[in-house]
Design a protein around this nucleic acid. Sequence first.
RNA 1: GGUGAUGUAGCUCAGACGGUUAGAGCGGUGGAUUCAUAACCCACAGGUCGGCAGUUCGAUCCUGCCCAUCACCA
Length: 713
Amino acid sequence: MSTTQPRKILVTSALPYANGAIHLGHLVEYIQTDIWVRFQKMRGHECWYVCADDTHGTPVMLRAEQEGITPEQLIARVHAEHSRDFAGFLVNFDNYYSTHSPETQECANLIYRRLKEAGLIEVRTIEQYYDPVKAMFLPDRFIKGECPKCGAKDQYGDNCEACGAAYTPNELKNPYSAVSGAPPVLKNSEHYFFKLSAPQCQELLRRWTREKGRLQPEAANKLQEWLGEEGENKLTDWDISRDAPYFGFEIPDAPGKYFYVWLDAPIGYMGSFKNLCARKGLDFDEWFKPDSATELYHFIGKDILYFHALFWPAELAHAGFRTPSKIFAHGFLTVDGAKMSKSRGTFITAASYLAQGLDPEWLRYYFAGKLTNTLEDLDLSLDDFVARVNADLIGKYINIASRSAGFIIKRFNGQLAPADADLPAIRAIQEAAPRIAELFEAREFGKAMREVMALADGANQYVDRVKPWELARREGQEVELHAACSNSLNLFRLLTVLLKPVLPDVAKKVETFLNVAPLTWDDTATLLAGGHGIQPYQHLMTRIDPKQVAALVEANKASLAPADTTASQAAPARAAGHSPQRHGEKQQHEAQAAEAAAAAGPHISIDDFMKLDLRVAKIVEASQVEGADKLVRLMLDIGEEKPRQVFAGIKSAYDPAQLQGRLTVMVANLAPRKMKFGLSEGMVLAASDPEGKTSGLYLLAPDPGAQPGMRIK
RNA sequence: GGUGAUGUAGCUCAGACGGUUAGAGCGGUGGAUUCAUAACCCACAGGUCGGCAGUUCGAUCCUGCCCAUCACCA
């Protein structure tokens, strides 16, 4: 039962952006990480858990300005809110710091300098939109104007929320800066790039991402896609600088240039740990030197795998540091099977959950019961949440103590009889403990909880069999009664050890109740001695009233107002690479986008229909697409200067040769979509049986006489 | 469209190197019990394991295609 050699483990969770509240989606990750860390500590390992607020970037800068405070004031306030929320959910960081810190700056500068010495930093001039009034360069998301396709006003620079068209900022009509309202101008600027395309980066990442255990298998597959085939370098250089004004760290040898927020975000892990080292007397270098014997794990959402599995190891390795031992990515949270939604009230903030008086350990248990080590999404089913917590935690687990403690207190003066070490229910738990430890280690918390609850069933069956309430009524059965209740409390204690990583507060109450030292994993091997005295039982956890959950949902319901006034919260979901995307913010953004769709009824209006720009198209060219099973590449003449390129999934039904020259119908205003094979600038219409009962695929064609470019309505 | 995943009882999820009656919890029904902040115990009902085809003596588990849902495409 003894744990092996103590390990030295450093663990991180992704840094939440300092511009928005923590919600249940974030908490999946922090609870998952916290359970794992608590487990490691219970095993006797040296394990440090650090995190920080991700504080830099344009959104924070503008938000602070909007509120009339400095960025420093804003991030200090948000830091306090985040810290409070995490503490409320018993997420026990050893250090919750900030990327806006001297330690992070020091590490960022050092990494930058070493990358530069390694020849991996390059300066290039790029052209970008600039706000002449505000005197700042504008990210795409901060340029607005009229949609070039449908004319909708106040659309962002990357895509139109009215018609869904995608475009670049310079296609917007009457563009203006979202910051000052002034028309932007194009201006050149020097940017600093990290040469991810360099051979040494590619070579490193190819090897690193394939090393056993670094990444989950699905994640490794994903990375292969980004890296491309052997000999095919799909990695592109990464723009790591932004122009002033910018809230961030100025690049040491480049006045007026700042590190892009995504450069210093992961470095924030180092900064936070460095700060902890100073306080705890730890040797930072021992943990970050290239051949370090310590372990480093990053828990992240699957959306930021790209940053953590490509940029980050490449930066570290070429700046003379160790790379992460493993990266643990998890899926997103859905609520009742759907994306979190403000109008449905399922966009639940951590603060509102706590304010409604719900017990954080309910959620910790529920998440634990559903967490796996894969990238699969996790559903919070509200009815299931109530049923599961009440049945498992109160009905099964807590009940064992509650039904035994009274007899011990009343009849035996709070003193236990020796436990029966051969009792099958006790032995079952002790034998299961190593297996459950492996499940915790492997982040298979769902499986672990299932095992624990099966063991709790065994404990209840034991109590039911020995029937203490009957023994209590009979004369001369005191010894049996004493033994039954003592065994039962020992069962309860053992189960508490197994649940302690998930339910730390309950475990603390149990330690007080049973009058024992803080439980460690090795306590699964021991039993309470005869004569051990316990405290009177006080209820350890209450049931969930479904009304509480209903009230929580009600409290989180937002009206269907268009994008709320905290516009800076709207992290651009599609403008990736321009702004940090934490899974939380992304979920939030998409939740908002989903609202509009949800509001629509089963019918569409004539206006909706008129949004479709359907055109008669002549197929001037049709060809096979190398490497695509279903696609045919079509060049379509719709009366424009140049034919449009469209990839159509019709290979199964049509030979390209027979398509050439014929007329069909295309959607001309569909947002262009970048595919592996090139840009697809529309869609051709074809009929097929939605049930799939009748096979075949049939392209639409106009009657003779129609000319390319004619509008269909 | 490509890539990665998912689709198993009303709900949330397990599981099976392909092989006699596919499991759990919740919910439902019936019983037992009253120690336990109605908790617990026993039993029953409930599924053509997304669809179609193939491989096989045999497939829900393998292969192919299709459908649906989710994510990513920097």
